[in-house]
């Protein structure tokens, strides 16, 4: 059986990992390649890099980062943030990304999902969806969560998979940063309407949160940023706990 994936997410700003990662043994704090190598050592199953500024200039920097990370770190890499068109996807894949996450552009230009899937295979097209509950409805937000849309997140998830998305990265904006657990209901609802892997993001605070989202919502991966970066949780301890709860991990 496939192992459930534990995925650290790194925010990149102008070539540096933004959120202060405080591994004690890093030579150069903030260097994406060195941090990626450290996470590989700790047993991460995959890495997500998000370009949080994504200006034109930064997009080029991201390609260089992917080149460098994929020369030293041999695990699946997903790259997102500011991906706008097919040439962005192509550049990132060529540089060594395994998957590219599309967020705002998927909403403004859904055809990009299909085009990307047809050209490169749906396994490398991830659609990232930022979700916030508004008046009892899960609504899709874009532009780093700043812009609300009237798209229903569950229906949108189903739609993007029909268009060719091979994986979904779903962030609960309500839970993000709270550290009080993943939005189980959201993932249960989405898992009922799609048959591609789902990565849950937002709300991880303690090891039990990971076991819970795997057991109750049967997601394929769980992503977290600060709890790993600040060493509040280690990947190893998360895996031990998840395994003890009866979930298959690597």
């Amino acid at each position: 059986m496939l192992a459930k994936r534990i995925i650290p997410c790194l925010d990149v700003d102008n070539g540096r990992v933004k959120k202060g990662v405080n591994f004690v043994n890093l030579m150069d704090v903030g260097d994406p390649t060195e941090i990626a190598a450290e996470y590989q050592k700790q047993g991460a199953d995959e890495l997500v890099f998000l370009d949080i500024t994504a200006t034109n200039e930064h997009r080029k920097t991201m390609v260089d980062i992917v080149e460098s990370v994929s020369s030293q770190v041999f695990m699946p890499l997903t790259i997102g943030g500011g991906v706008q068109d097919i040439s962005d996807i192509q550049r990132l894949l060529k540089a060594g990304a395994d998957k590219v996450a599309i967020n705002s552009a998927a909403v403004s230009d859904p055809q990009l999902i299909t085009e990307g899937a047809e050209k490169f295979g749906n396994q490398c097209i991830v659609v990232a969806i930022d979700v916030k509950k508004t008046n009892g409805k899960y609504l899709v937000h874009t532009h780093g969560g700043k812009k609300a849309t009237d798209l229903d997140a569950i229906k949108w998830a189903k739609k993007v998979v029909e268009l060719g998305a091979g994986e979904l990265l779903i962030t609960s904006m309500d839970k993000d940063g709270t550290k009080d657990g993943f939005d189980i209901e959201l993932y249960q609802a989405i898992n009922q309407v799609v048959n591609v892997p789902i990565i849950a993001s937002g709300g991880a605070g303690k090891v039990e949160d990971f076991s819970e989202v795997f057991k109750k919502a049967d997601v394929d991966g769980a992503l977290a940023a600060s709890v790993f970066h600040f060493g509040e949780l280690s990947i190893n301890n998360v895996k031990k706990a998840v395994k003890k709860a009866g979930v298959t991990v690597r």
Binding site: M1, L2, A3, R5, D45, Q123, G166, E167, N195, V196, P197, D220, G221, R250
Partner: peptide, 11 residues
Amino acid sequence: GLKIPQMGWNQ
């Protein structure tokens, strides 16, 4: 009843 493609780590 499993997701296809098989995508991930297997033993």
